[in-house]
Structures are given as C-alpha cells and as structure tokens.
Design a protein around this nucleic acid. Structure first.
Length: 577
RNA sequence: GCGCUCGUAGCUCAGCGGAUAGAGCAACAGACUUCUAAUCUGUCGGUCGCAGGUUCAAAUCCUGCCGGGCGCACCA
C-alpha cells in the first residue's frame, strides 16, 4: 500500500533488557508487590476450590490495584465481586473465604472486606519496602518481564515515502512505534523494526519530474510535489550530477529521480536516527519487482486458488475474506499494482520467518486493514493471529491538516530543533495512538513547562543531585532497614515503583506504550512529594542515621525506575538540568 | 450512502466494568537561611455528546441518534 501522509514510527537502538526475577511462591513472601499479591490470591483461590469451599474456574487475570482512597488499604481487588456470580455465592461470602487465607500470608498485615465485596489489603511496611532492595539489585533489568517470551514479530512503522521530508504526521509514529518496540522487547518479545520504502511506481516518477522541473524552471507536473524542499533537492542533484542539465529529458528524469531519491532517503534516515529511531530493516519495494517476487507472489496466490482473470486484469478474491471488493493485482495494461507489491511483501515477511506482523498506520489508511488481512488469508495464514493493524489518529497542528504537497509542513527536523528530541518524543509518546491529538504550534515553540517530560526528567536529575549531596555528607547504602520507610509518601512512592513491571507488561500486551509515560508521571509525582517530606541527607550537623541510609536506597530505586522508564520511551534521563 | 474512528473540567488529554471521575495548563491563594521551587500545598472548575438497553455495579459493554476526523480506484 502506499502511504501518502500518514506516519509510522521507528524503533530505537537503546535496547531494553529482558529478564525477570520470578516472584517467590505465595507461601514464602518476603516482600509484597501487586504482582505477588495477585499470584498469592490465585493460590488462595485454588486452595479454596481444592478444599471444596468454592466451585469456580480461577480467572486468568486477577487484578490488584492501588485504591484511590488511602483508607482503602495499600492494594485492593474486586475478584470476589467478579467470582460471585459464577460461584453462585454472595460476593461477601467469596471475599471472606479469600480474606481468611490472605491474612495468614507473611507480609500481609490486614485484609478488610469493604462495600459490596472489595478486598482491601494492608501490607506490612517492611515487606513492602523490601522491594526497594530488589529494584536496586535488578538495576536496568527492573521492569523487564517475560509476558511475551517466545513471541517473534515484525513491527512496521513510519514507512514514509522517500519523496519528501518527514513531517509531524510521521513523528507520532516514530515516537510511539519505537517506544512500542522497546516495550515489547522488554516484555520478552523478539522484535524486528522494519521500514517499507515505497520506491517504485508512478509516484517516484512524479517526484523525479518535480525535481527536474525545478532544475529546468518549468512547471511542476500534474500531481507533483510543490514543497520548497524540492528546489533544495534539485540544487543538490545538480551538485552531484552537473551533467544533468545537458542530458536529454528522459535521462535527466531518471537522474533527477534516482539521485533525489538517494538524497531524500538518506536524509530521512538521518533525521530518524537523530530522533533516536533506528530500523533493523529498510525494505525496498523495488526489490520485489526487480527480483520477480511480485510475479511469483501472483503465481503463488493463483495456485492457492484465490486469483481470477476478469476484464483483462488479474484479481485477488479478497472478498472471500471480508474485504469490500476484490483487488486488482495486475491491471489490464499489464502493470502491477501496489497491491500486488503488498501481497509479495507479505509473503516476504512470512518467508523471512515472521509469524506475525504489526502495522502501524494512520487513520487515513484504515481502509487497508481488510485487504491486508485478506492477503494473509489468501496466502493460507490466519489473519487474526498473523496480522495486527494499529490505527492511529492523525496529528493536527493548529487545525491545519498536513499534506506533503502543500507547502506549509512542519518537518520532524524542525520540531527537534525547536524542542529537542526528548520533548518531542515524550510529548507524542504519552498519548495513545488512537487519541486525536492537536498540537498547538505556538505552545510547541514556547518550550514551557507544559510538557511533562520536564517534570519526569527533573525528578531524575533531582535524584542524581540528591545522591551526590548524600555522598558528600557521608550518607551511604551500608544499611537497609525497610521498616524505616514508613512515611505516607514512602508508602505511595514504593507502591508506584512496585507497579512498574506490570505497567510495562500491560503496555506491551495492549500495544500502548503511553501507559509507561503516564506511570512515570505518577512515579515522579510520588517522588517529588516524598522529597518534600523526607530528607536523605541530614540537616546541618545532625548525625547520619540508618533512616538516611535506607532512604538513599529508596532514592536509588526511584532513580532506577525513572531511568528505565524513560529508556523505554527513548527519552534521555539527564543527571542535571 | 456505506465503513472506520473520536466526542470526559475553559484548553490539551488520562481513565475504558467497580468504591466520592483524574492530571497538566489556565485562574486564584500559600510554601524557598536547610538534599535543584523545572518542586510542593490548597481553592476554583464536569448533565463523562444525547437517548435507550445489559449488569449487583456503566465514562467504560450493546443499540440508535447528533457532532468532528478519515476512508470507500484496473491512483499512488
């Protein structure tokens, strides 16, 4: 398919590690986190079922949440409400069964049944705080999980045409897609970031024609590109090929197209790289045509019985698999369509060993979803499992839509120059892809604190500074006494840190990296409040005590979580600001 | 016309089956001799587009309507 003005995004080098410490068995809890409570509740449920006290199938997921109201305990679950009906018991009765077992767990201080049947759990301070040591020990690995272990997938994003610069529309996918790749990787998936380059077909000729027109001072051809960048490309083409002016029209056109293409692609690649986005594979559409892969694909699909010859054209019967209408593979004039290349591309993805491909497309391409799935179905693959299409709303700026052919586009390059890659990446990665997003060009240029990236980065920088201060004043981590972390702000901060791995796993599963950003804001907020209330370095000449040493552990754990989270978003974690 | 998608505070947006709907910005009032005030505390601000339905429980799921965006080529 051809991507005109939508954008995708890319992935980034920075790698995220994947490794995870398995939670201890429920009966040997030495620290208590929501993940572990979830497992423990499952064990309690299974025990209740085994004891014949309850007859239900234990659900796959038992959600343990941090309640909004502090009075509702450290963690709560609505599992009793959910199981009431299938178990044929009143919710409070189910809750009581669970409650009786949960209170006996080490680290659990109390369990209350509230309202219609919520279980509100209060955790022993030291058991909750024990997590801090775990985080510091895990370092950059904290947050990694094996939720998607064994998953191999090909993630395609950005894939902007090489006929012009990357603009703000592509930027959203670049930021989100790369973050998604990192989050997936952190959850154990094996991800290949791929960029499909539409470098074949009439659009490329129009591109070449537009450059040539600039070179010769003639009118831009119908359907050509008018942006000022075309003139700049023309100048660069002339620089590389001074002979272009003397060549006959047909040859000059090819030179303009090919040299312009090379320049533009290299530039876009550099722009993405500067944005922190690196692709593993740059897949050229041309290679599909040149290698005969397109013909082979048509033949292969024909063998599988899904190709018809009608009206002089060759059709793929995509309507067999939910598409609105059949699609032409080879036109009556013998020309292969983009759709044919798309089909060949899918087969290439399969042949290269990917059982699954995720496409990130702009809303202007949602019409492609059915036919992409139909291709897979025609090829004998199960579209439900092998193809996943994430549709994102287009970003608009000041109400104006962006078109590559109109002049006034905001380029990714310029955005980064104004705000820095971190601010741009973060401000795009903190919204779900399907959220309609309106960026105000005025605000964007202002570099105000509107942007929460500063809030999160500042928390990290503040923690680094705090650690330096602590060291200078003789506070070290020679002692860790978790029961001393008993301030309300410490309870809240530790809870936020404890949720991080589950947030990462959830972001990966739902393909919603923005959840990481939102949670980092929670962590940063909890930290700033803690900072305001609890000191790591003693005031004045006050002696250094174990509480200070222990708090330094919490500071390091907090810093680690912020750094790990920012890394998942491809955003820097500055040591000072 | 058909299809997809979105509609939450003045603005930009979270939340997407649970307990009094949240944040930032904006507005107003406070907190810096002490680890970075890019911070913190408080106040103000909402018929979660409208109407039905499912449920013990709906902003969240279903249906219809209204409104915005996008898509419906032997184009790329």
């Amino acid at each position: 398919m051809r991507r005109l003005c939508s954008a995708y995004r890319g992935i980034e080098p920075g790698t995220v590690q994947c490794l995870r410490v398995p939670p201890p068995p429920a009966d040997t809890l030495d620290r208590v986190t929501p993940d572990e409570l979830s497992s423990a509740i499952r064990a309690c449920l299974e025990a209740a079922v085994a004891a014949g006290e309850l007859t239900v199938s234990v659900p796959d997921e038992i959600r343990v949440e941090r309640p909004r109201q502090r009075e509702h305990g450290d963690w709560s679950t609505n599992i009793a409400l959910q199981l009431a009906k299938p178990a044929g018991r009143p919710p409070r009765a189910v809750a009581e069964l669970l409650s009786a077992r949960l209170v006996d767990l080490p680290g659990v201080k109390s369990v209350d049944i509230a309202g219609p049947g919520f279980l509100n759990i209060v955790v022993d301070t030291a058991s909750a705080a024990e997590l801090v040591r775990t985080i510091v020990g895990a370092g950059t690995a904290y947050g990694q999980n094996q939720q998607l272990a064994g998953t191999v997938l090909n993630l395609e994003f950005v894939s902007a045409n090489p006929t012009g610069p990357l603009h703000i529309g592509h930027t959203r996918w670049a930021a989100l897609g790369d973050a998604l790749a990192r989050v997936l990787t952190a959850s154990g998936a094996q991800v290949t970031r791929e960029y499909y380059v539409n470098d074949a077909g009439a659009q490329m000729d129009r591109f070449g024609g537009s450059i040539l027109a600039r070179l010769r001072g003639t009118d831009i051809p119908e359907g050509g590109y008018h942006g000022e960048y075309v003139a700049e490309l023309a100048a660069k083409v002339r620089e590389q090929r001074p002979d272009v002016d003397d060549l006959p029209e047909a040859e000059a056109l090819i030179v303009a197209r090919e040299v312009g293409y090379a320049i533009q692609l290299a530039e876009n690649r550099q722009t993405l790289s500067n944005f922190g986005v690196e692709f593993d594979v740059w897949f050229s559409e041309r290679t599909l045509h040149e290698s005969g892969a397109v013909e082979q694909a048509v033949a292969r699909l024909r063998e599988q019985g899904h190709v018809d010859d009608r009206d002089g054209a060759v059709w793929l019967r995509t309507t067999d698999f939910g598409d609105d209408k059949d699609r032409v593979l080879i036109k009556a004039d013998g020309e292969k369509t983009y759709f044919a290349a798309d089909a060949a591309y899918w087969l290439s993805v399969r042949d290269r060993g990917f059982p699954k491909k995720i496409y990130m497309l702009g809303a202007d391409h949602h019409g492609y979803v059915q036919r992409l799935k139909a291709i897979a179905a025609c090829a004998g693959d199960d579209p439900e499992t092998s193809i996943e299409v994430l549709i994102g709303q287009l970003v608009s700026v000041g109400g104006a839509r962006l078109s590559k052919r109109a002049g006034n586009i905001i380029e990714l390059k310029d955005l980064v120059d104004w705000l820095g890659a971190d601010a741009v990446r973060y401000s795009l990665a903190r919204y779900p892809a399907d959220s309609p997003l309106t960026l105000d060009g005025e605000v964007l240029q202002k570099k105000t604190n509107d942007n929460p990236v500063f809030y999160v980065q500042y928390a990290h920088a503040r923690l680094c500074s705090l650690a330096n201060q602590a060291r200078e004043h003789g506070v070290d981590r020679s002692v860790f006494e978790p029961s001393l972390l008993d301030h309300v702000t410490e309870n809240a901060l530790i809870a936020a840190l404890a949720q991080f791995p589950a947030i990462v796993a959830q972001s990966a599963e739902l393909r919603e990296p923005h959840r990481v950003a939102r949670h980092l804001e929670v962590v940063a907020g909890a930290f700033h409040k803690w900072y305001d209330e609890c000191r790591v370095t003693p005031r004045g000449d006050d002696p250094v005590e174990d509480v200070h040493r222990t708090r330094l552990w919490l500071a390091e754990a907090s810093r680690q979580v912020l750094a790990n989270g920012l890394n998942l978003l491809g955003v820097g974690a500055p040591e000072r600001m």
